[in-house]
Each structure stands twice: as structure tokens, then as C-alpha cells.
Simulated assay, not measured.
Amino acid sequence: MVSCPSGTNMRRADTPPRIPGSVGFGNRSCSPAFANRIVAVSRMEVIRRDFRREGFSEPLVNLLVAGNRSSTLSTYESAWRNWIDWCFRRNENSLSVPLKSVLEFLTGLHRDGKSYNSVNVHRSMLSKTLPAVDGHPVGTHPLVKNLLNGCYNLNPPKPKYNCSWDPSIVIQFMAQLGKNESISFPSLTRKTATLLALASLLRVSELAAINFQSINFSEESVKFSLLKPRKAQHSGPLQTISIPAIPEEDCCPVHALKAYVKLTGPFRGNSNINQLFISVISPHGGVTANTISRWIRITLKESGVDTSVFSAHSTRGAAASKASAAGISIDEILKAGHWKTESTFSRFYKRTMEPSIVPAVFQLDGQVLMS
């Protein structure tokens, strides 16, 4: 392992050295404190400026920036703000600091009780933002890698839940709401979102990305695609999801979706024609993942699930655990949940369920789940 002297500044090999203690903005140099105030506006402006400095055209810059998804950019922006604040308090130049400062920053996150995943996000953000050091991206420098190993060994990632709730109680609750055509718009919206989450194992961000115009009903199922790739998808066409219908119409995701599509038809126009889920309040614009998450939490709470413990995201683990207990093959579960390996499912999602006396009739990829 090659160590780096504590005073070594991080610079890109193909850019001219900066004046010690300052950072350049165009032809202008400024103090670390002033630089931090400017850079605090946006991490992406720093990235774009560096690309332009290399002489890259604006279309090229836009493609390079699009290499990270909006959710990743938002996460990195939050981590960047933490880095800016840390540097400002120490009068450090946030764009050109000794490696020692990066190590101390990450150490401080660990000392403050941040999880390994949180520390790793900050490491990744710095690696994709700051100049290289000793010929390494800062995030892959041997000392930084060793520090992350230490964080993992001392505070390894822990599963969010030790057990799971039984989808049976939620399905039974929604069946008791009555016919889809007779319940209110907000109730049908929450019911449809929750049933689709359980039947498809989609994340709330993926539910928000269901392409309304791709929905295709048949006598026995519904098929639809998403407006963007799934979380772990980095190649190939947009995925098509197929959900089979079940005889019990009052708790069938296909029948709920069909009723929802019919009910929302008069509310759709050019501004919301692509997104399946729209606001229950006029002018009925497309909704974000946060709104869908809130809808599902309301349904879970009304069903008797402890939402002080379980979030909307827990529908993935609950439905997948139910499928596993019902004997559905692990390959089918991994495919539906878009998990690459069985170890990921087993470690973070597969859980024993809290006791339930309510029978369930539900399907995952055409196979019936019975309690």
C-alpha cells in the first residue's frame, strides 16, 4: 500500500497546478472561504465547469452529466453540502485539499454514527468530484479504501427490519373497502398503488414511473412498462411488467388498476398523459415517489401495520417473503424484485412474518400465495 504525504494536494494530471490555498474560477482566483461560498450553490456546476475547461462541447457535457441518474445526483448533492460545510468551518479549499482532510472528513462521519452506506456515499461523491491524488481517484486511493474497510468492520450494514408484516392483513383490509367503482378517488388511488406494489415488487420510485400509455389489459392480466430504467438496470430495453388477475375482484390489482384508469381518464391531458399515478387534487398533475410512499403508508396504517416501524418500501420485503414462504421459486422472486443475487434478497428482504390469522389469495408471476 502506498501512502500519501499529508500535505499532498489533489490535482488532475491534465490541468495546470492551482495557486496553493486558492481555487480558480475562470481567470479569477479566490480564497478557500470564498470558493466554498460559491461552490455551495451546486455540485453540478463544479462538474460542468471542469468539463467545459477541458474544451468539451455542451451536448457532450450534457451526456456526461446524464451518466448519473437524478436520484444519485440528489444524493450526491446532499453529501456535497456536508463536505462544503465541513471545509468552510476549517477554512479549507473544498476543491483542492490534502488527502488527510478527506480522510478526516470520512472519519468524522463514522465517529458521528453515520452508517457504512452513508460514509460510502460521501466517499463516492468526493471520488467523482475532486481531482485525482497520487494517480488514483480519491475514492479508490489505498488509504481511503482501507478507511472504508475499517468503517465496515466496526459498523457493518444492518438489515432495516428483523421481521415483516403479512400482506394478508392488508389485502383483506382492501377487499373490505368494497367495489372499486363505489369507493372514493383517494381510496381507490391508495388501494391501486398498494396492490401494485405488492403484486409487482416495484419500488415507489418505479411505481411513479409507470408509463400510462403502455398499459395493456387482457382478460387475464395487465402489462405495462416504465418511463425509465429500474434502479439496478444499466443496459437493455425498459422492462415490461406483467401482473395476472385473480378471481377476487375486490383485492385484485388488475381490476383495481382498470377502475383507476377509467376514473382518471377525464382528468388527463397533455401534462399528465404519460404518468399513471396523478394527484387526487386538481389540476391532477403527475406525482412523485414521496406522494406514492405516503399513500401506501396510509393504507398500511389503516390495515393495522405499524408504520412507525415499517415504511412503504417494506412492501417489497413483505410480498417477497410471503412468496418464499408459499414455495415460489427463488428465481421467480429474484426476477420480480429485480435482485441480482439470492444473498441480497436473503440478507435485506427475506424475513419471518408477524403472526396473522387472515388467509390471503394473491399472485406473484401467476403463482398463488396462500397463508
Rank of each mutant, 00 (worst) to 15 (best):
F224L: 13
F267I: 15
R28Q: 10
K223G: 11
W80P: 04
S57V: 02
D250A: 12
L99A: 04
H255W: 03
V170L: 05
K114F: 06
F173P: 11
F310M: 10
I292P: 15
L196F: 07
S308Y: 13
D365N: 14
H141A: 03
L73F: 09
P186S: 03
F51E: 12
E332H: 11
S78A: 13
I296N: 07
V144F: 02
K228E: 14
S303W: 03
L188G: 10
A232H: 10
R297Q: 12
R48D: 13
P17M: 03
G178Q: 04
T344R: 06
V102C: 15
T8H: 04
I328H: 03
K301M: 14
G113Y: 00
P32H: 12
G135S: 08
N216V: 03
I333N: 14
I243P: 06
E54V: 00
P131M: 08
K223L: 02
I169C: 01
F348N: 07
L276N: 03
I19T: 14
D14K: 00
A209E: 06
N155K: 11
Y161Q: 03
A35P: 04
G135F: 15
Q213V: 14
Y76D: 09
T129R: 11
M370L: 11
A323L: 10
L334E: 07
S279I: 10
R28F: 10
N272C: 10
S182D: 14
K350A: 10
F185K: 08
H141T: 13
M44T: 01
S94C: 10
A312L: 09
V46R: 08
P283K: 01
W80R: 02
K158Q: 14
Y76V: 11
E77S: 04
K160S: 06
R351E: 05
L63N: 10
K114L: 04
L106N: 03
R37L: 13
G265W: 15
P16H: 05
V144S: 00
L188T: 12
Y260Q: 05
Q176A: 15
S57D: 05
C252D: 07
E354A: 06
H255Y: 01
L106K: 08
